[in-house]
Design a binder for these strands. Structure first.
Lengths: 349, 349
DNA sequence: CTGTTAGCGCCTTCAG
DNA sequence: CTGAAGGCGCTAACAG
């Protein structure tokens, strides 16, 4: 029924071993022989059996990319860059083709673990985890244990836009969320703002905590007292920003600026402000984080912190493929760049 | 080194077959025995070897989802919905876990074929192809052949937001792009517009062609003559919309409306219009397609056609898992809903 | 309900 | 440079 390597061997009049060798290209084979084999492969329309080869070789060509939310361009952009470095490699030959796949955890710790197990089960060649991690201690420990086991089994593990996982053998490319957030808030303080609302991401996430810490560090350095009512938590999406802003306005209508956990949230904030009859930035300034493509098209354009998502992803992909040296100490910190645009201005008096 | 099923069997004092049975849960096993086995699994920290099991069973738990652009929420939303139906199934047990993975073709026919081959190689349980197809004849034939082969090998193939592929055994959930585009343009014509620019997607794509056809059908029905200069082609992104609009304006400054191939393109169009000193919709009306989440936040909010991406994806996922009957004739047409918002108005005089 | 027996299709020493 | 042989870890009939 289904054509196997043995069939190809028979047709090319060589041994199965030889066919395997030309297919994997990891061993010298006479040009004429290779030619013959390749022709047979074509004629028979042969497709290698992945599981069988993975079983025999004890490694597969699967590379997993974990993302928290595949519908969010933040992850889409990184995933795309990672995948481009991994999937698009093997010019045309059947050999080095790797199957780069992205897995959507939806931000759920259980699903993250499940995917990791599934990938481990497949003997994945590499795994790249993107975005912030959940900080719940038992879960963090479980993930760390998984990563360690993965590494032990020969799977290369890379963290992209995620904090380092000590003692797991994982390489980390981390975003300087704290620093970026700090510079952003400093910018607002520099404009004269003193009453700033902050819409944070979900609790127990590293990204949420780091950005919030950066914000607070800036306030502290400027000796601006912070009111606990000025901080609200919510998911990283547009709706959350909308609702949180309404809540913030209710708690304290005198706020002159709203800093959002990311650009999507900031967009929702803009909508809420506008519907409340407030002008941006004349009445209230707004700032985001990430600098996603749509942010420049917002009206007014969003002041935000640009993260080099595509570059970081590409680098992570190369490291996962073993085509680039990991950074010294297996950790690299990637800075964000402050983008000052129309949504931030001097506060009203 | 690595613990195998035999090790578990030994520790639980049963045969390997029994262990396999409790793990797959597809065969009666005494509760006490299962208990013992599960304990051994835990104690040994055993992880099933995917390739080995796939080889023996001649099917794997991999489900592939192909998308044209993972950084585009259009695909992200569908992929997320599909994956949720597939990945999140197996309550907690190790048994029915499926590994739903998304593969990014970047819109390239070669990569599409490559991924299909890779998935075939892995003996994927199912494959879902999303979004428009490339219309290049040889490529279309190659894809059709691949799909047929996949189906023959027992892989379930579902097309989501993509036209049917006759004689391949694939189930198709198709968007009524033509009808949606037609209603959208009819809306604009109803407002009084007679000079409408159209920013189409890339050539040779089914989505591009269908939407353009719908647009033209509306014009023809209203007996509005179309100037060839009013149509421009480009990628499905924001930048393309920006540049195309500038080009359209150059060719004919008297246009009163710009219809875009999708929302991202429409956003770029808005930016270009605004920078050209034109008001929306007073000077020029703008319309998009898809109704992505950010479209309602545009200023003014975008008039567009809403496609039920999440619903369609969920349904595709269920069909791929065999949990829902395919539609009669293996084809379902999904309509879009016209969303009239602030970006469209009566034309200037 | 549980154990035994064969492979699944390929890779990889080991000879030649 | 090429062939022969064994086994990777698991599942699927068959018996019992």
């Amino acid at each position: 029924m289904t054509v196997t390597l043995a069939d190809v061997a028979a047709r090319a009049q060589v041994s199965p071993a030889t066919v395997s060798r030309v297919l994997n290209g990891n061993y010298p084979v006479a040009a004429s022989t290779r030619e013959r084999v390749l022709r047979a492969v074509d004629e028979l329309d042969y497709v290698l059996n992945g599981p069988a080869s993975a079983l025999a070789a004890a490694t597969s060509d699967l590379v997993g990319i974990l993302v928290n939310d595949i519908a969010d361009p933040f992850f889409g952009i990184m995933a795309s860059a990672i995948q481009a470095e991994i999937g698009g490699v093997g010019g045309g030959r059947a050999g080095g083709e790797r199957l780069a796949v992205v897995c959507n955890t939806g931000g759920s710790p259980e699903r993250e673990l499940t995917y990791l197990t599934l990938l481990q089960r497949q003997r994945a060649a590499a795994v790249v985890l993107t975005g912030g991690a959940v900080e719940d201690a038992p879960h963090a420990a479980a993930v760390a244990a998984k990563l360690r086991k993965l590494a032990e089994a020969g799977t290369r593990v890379v963290l992209c836009g995620r904090p380092p996982a000590p003692d797991t053998g994982a390489v980390a490319l981390t975003f300087d969320n704290r620093g970026g957030a700090r510079r952003l808030t400093e910018h607002l303080l520099g404009l004269g703002h003193r009453r700033l609302g902050y819409i944070a991401g979900p609790e127990e996430r590293t990204t949420t905590r780091h950005r919030l810490e950066g914000h607070r560090a800036a306030l502290a350095a400027a000796q601006v007292e912070e009111d606990p009512r000025w901080t609200v938590h919510g998911p990283y999406d547009r709706q959350s920003g909308y609702e949180a802003t309404l809540e913030l306005l209710r708690r304290d209508p005198s706020l002159t600026a709203v800093v959002a956990a990311n650009d999507s949230v900031a967009l929702g904030a803009c909508a809420a402000l506008r519907e409340s009859g407030l002008r941006i930035p004349e009445d209230v300034s707004v700032a985001g984080f990430d600098d996603l493509p749509f942010s420049v098209d917002a009206v007014p354009a969003l002041t935000t912190v640009r993260l080099p998502l595509a570059e970081a992803g590409a680098r992570a992909g190369r490291i996962a493929m073993g085509r680039e040296e990991p950074p010294p100490g297996a950790i690299a910190v990637i800075r964000g760049e402050l983008m000052v645009r129309g949504s931030s201005g001097v506060p009203r008096v």
